[in-house]
Amino acid sequence: MGRFWAVFFVASAVIAVGLCWVAPSYGLWFPGTLKGGFGAGVAHSSIGKKIDDLFYLVLVIVAVTYIGTHAVLGYVLWRGATIKPEEKVLFSHGSHSLEVIWTIVPAGILLYIALYQMDVWAAYRFKEFSPKKAEAVAEVTARQFEWRIRYPARGKTLMPTPQPDDVYTVNELHVPTGRPVSISLKTEDVQHAFFVPELRIKQDAVPGLTIPVWFDVDEPRQYEMVCAELCGWGHYKMKARLIAVSDEDFGAWKDKAALEQFDDGFKKPAE
């Protein structure tokens, strides 16, 4: 039975590592565009790329630790199972120096990660960009179970309260690409979370608060936008899209949307 467990634990580790290794080629890795159709998805925002780098750093540390500990575990189990009766057994239980080593080494690693990640967090929150300084393009209000979005009229700034010439959409957030923009995130009822996986942008919407969220989008196309906080039985219905377009297209879209929204239904009779 001892040999079985040795093989079992080593095999499960090998399978886990193997699956992780091949996952990117099946697109089962980060969401985003795959480089040359292979590998992990690349984030489409500048902060998203930094978050990915952070993730890869943690992944390398964890992978080394995981493989190392499983190799040792396998060896120890196998040795214990195949040991001959006349062989001398080494007991390491209660070894002070070993315990000091495996306390200090992980503590050092964790401290390193804790300090290193602060920079990315600071970049997202205030260092690189204050969300209040980015151009506010829209007010996004979550409610059970949809996203209602309000934009200022073309050439105007977003006001905290609705204005007569505001433009509205539901479940589609239009933003310009290539520069940092921000949204004012609100919720009408319970807690929701604004999540655009391909941008790595996630922010809870909290009742009573207006939370500014900034991001930039590098490629003009449509991105999936979902709710990342279980907000009720219809949580799965909060599927929306972030539609990123170039600056000119953004202006053109807003003109078209405004025209549609202020439609009076009157058709000039043919002369």
Binding site: E146, R148, V170, N171, E172, K237, K239
Partner: peptide, 15 residues
């Protein structure tokens, strides 16, 4: 169906 009905529980099924 696409725009939902604000003020009620009918959400938008835009996509």
């Amino acid at each position: 169906l696409q725009h939902g009905i604000p003020g009620t529980y009918m959400p938008s099924f835009r996509w």
